[in-house]
Amino acid sequence: MNHILEVDGVMLSFGINRILQNVYLKCTTGNVTGLLGRNGCGKSCLMKIIIGDPLTEEKSIRINGKSLLGSSRLPEDLRYLPQHNFVPDSLSLERIFDDFEIDIEAFIESFPEFEQYRGMKMAHLSGGVKRILELYLVLKSKSKFVILDEPFSHIMPVHVDTIKNLILEEKSNKGILVSDHLYEHIMQISDEVYMIKNGRTFPIKSVEELHENGYVRLW
Rank of each mutant, 00 (worst) to 15 (best):
residue 104 I to P: 09
residue 208 E to T: 07
residue 179 S to E: 14
residue 41 C to H: 04
residue 76 E to D: 11
residue 107 F to E: 00
residue 191 D to L: 04
residue 74 L to A: 13
residue 205 K to F: 05
residue 146 V to P: 07
residue 96 I to S: 10
residue 166 L to F: 06
residue 131 R to K: 15
residue 50 I to M: 05
residue 137 L to K: 02
residue 75 P to Q: 10
residue 3 H to T: 06
residue 117 Y to W: 15
residue 79 R to A: 06
residue 209 E to L: 07
residue 82 P to A: 05
residue 57 E to A: 09
residue 45 C to N: 15
residue 79 R to L: 09
residue 215 Y to G: 04
residue 103 D to Y: 10
residue 15 G to D: 06
residue 34 G to H: 10
residue 120 M to A: 10
residue 164 K to S: 14
residue 99 D to L: 15
residue 167 I to V: 15
residue 178 V to P: 00
residue 79 R to K: 15
residue 45 C to V: 10
residue 41 C to Y: 05
residue 69 L to A: 11
residue 149 D to G: 09
residue 161 D to L: 07
residue 79 R to D: 02
residue 140 K to P: 04
residue 165 N to P: 04
residue 95 R to L: 06
residue 201 T to Q: 01
residue 49 I to N: 00
residue 22 N to R: 05
residue 206 S to L: 08
residue 134 E to W: 03
residue 80 Y to Q: 11
residue 51 I to E: 10
residue 36 L to H: 10
residue 123 A to V: 12
residue 2 N to L: 11
residue 77 D to S: 11
residue 198 N to M: 12
residue 130 K to F: 05
residue 211 H to E: 14
residue 106 A to H: 06
residue 61 I to W: 03
residue 78 L to M: 04
residue 23 V to Q: 05
residue 190 S to Y: 02
residue 125 L to C: 09
residue 39 N to T: 11
residue 103 D to C: 07
residue 60 S to M: 06
residue 45 C to H: 14
residue 33 T to M: 06
residue 200 R to I: 12
residue 63 I to P: 00
residue 196 I to W: 13
